[in-house]
Amino acid sequence: MKHTPVNPALSRHEIISRLGKAVHPSPPDLNKYDQTAVMALFLFNQALPKLLFIQKADVAGYPWRNQMAFPGGHVDETDDSPLETALRELEEELGIVPENVEVIGSMGHFQTINHKDIHAFTGIWNQQGPIRFDPVEIRRVFQIPVPHLADLHREKKYLGQTPPILDLTYPFQDVVIWGVTAKILHHMLDTLMDH
């Protein structure tokens, strides 16, 4: 499959620069939402940059059963900041320690229909050490090429548009990224791509 460039030179430097300079969604009234944080991790082990996603476990009764997501979870009282939450959850869920992550920064706030505010962060994993996860919580881990996601973003005419949440989907192999994870991804791709 031939990929449409996300940008003519989507280098590590350009990703950091574009995400750092962009205007990201502001926080809502945090007293009205449960606070959570996620980490969208880039990998640069080959020519194409990739993003790391998890697929939640296939457990009956689990509210996030089989959903695609960025690693993350609830902000604990012991966490000093939402960024600390995102890094802690990354280590707990995948065994990726904070010292192996170059944090790019905040990508803003995204709300779910069940009153959760997700503070999304981006970072780059140096890929030191293996990924380790508990199959009770996580079914699979995906490394999805960013150009594949950008192609979908352009083909579905999402670029510069905000489609209704139920129409916002990014399929990959036998899974689909949807819901608030798709909303975060949409904002990221709109930030990285040339309009």
Rank of each mutant, 00 (worst) to 15 (best):
residue 111 Q to K: 06
residue 50 K to P: 03
residue 195 H to Q: 12
residue 40 A to N: 01
residue 117 D to A: 15
residue 103 V to R: 01
residue 135 P to G: 00
residue 111 Q to N: 09
residue 96 I to C: 06
residue 46 Q to M: 07
residue 90 L to E: 10
residue 164 P to S: 08
residue 93 E to M: 15
residue 41 L to Q: 04
residue 10 L to D: 04
residue 3 H to Q: 06
residue 16 I to K: 07
residue 15 I to T: 03
residue 123 G to N: 01
residue 124 I to H: 00
residue 113 I to P: 05
residue 141 V to Q: 06
residue 99 E to V: 12
residue 72 G to H: 13
residue 28 P to S: 13
residue 45 N to F: 03
residue 158 Y to H: 03
residue 110 F to N: 03
residue 104 I to E: 00
residue 129 G to I: 12
residue 117 D to C: 14
residue 23 V to N: 11
residue 106 S to K: 04
residue 147 P to S: 09
residue 86 A to R: 05
residue 147 P to C: 10
residue 11 S to D: 09
residue 62 Y to E: 12
residue 87 L to A: 08
residue 97 V to L: 15
residue 163 P to M: 07
residue 166 L to A: 12
residue 146 V to C: 04
residue 74 H to N: 12
residue 103 V to D: 01
residue 43 L to T: 15
residue 122 T to K: 00
residue 38 V to D: 08
residue 156 K to Q: 11
residue 131 I to N: 05
residue 103 V to T: 10
residue 121 F to E: 03
residue 67 Q to S: 15
residue 114 N to P: 00
residue 24 H to E: 09
residue 27 P to R: 12
residue 175 V to A: 07
residue 115 H to G: 00
residue 171 P to A: 02
residue 70 F to W: 08
residue 90 L to N: 12
residue 60 A to P: 12
residue 77 E to D: 14
residue 49 P to A: 07
residue 112 T to D: 07
residue 92 E to S: 08
residue 111 Q to E: 11
residue 85 T to L: 04
residue 172 F to T: 01
residue 91 E to P: 00
residue 75 V to Y: 03
residue 45 N to E: 14
residue 135 P to F: 01
residue 165 I to A: 14
residue 135 P to I: 05
residue 137 E to R: 13
residue 155 E to Q: 14
residue 177 I to C: 08
residue 128 Q to W: 04
residue 45 N to I: 01
residue 51 L to W: 05
residue 165 I to M: 11
residue 104 I to Y: 00
residue 1 M to E: 07
residue 10 L to N: 06
residue 67 Q to G: 02
residue 54 I to W: 00
residue 91 E to M: 11
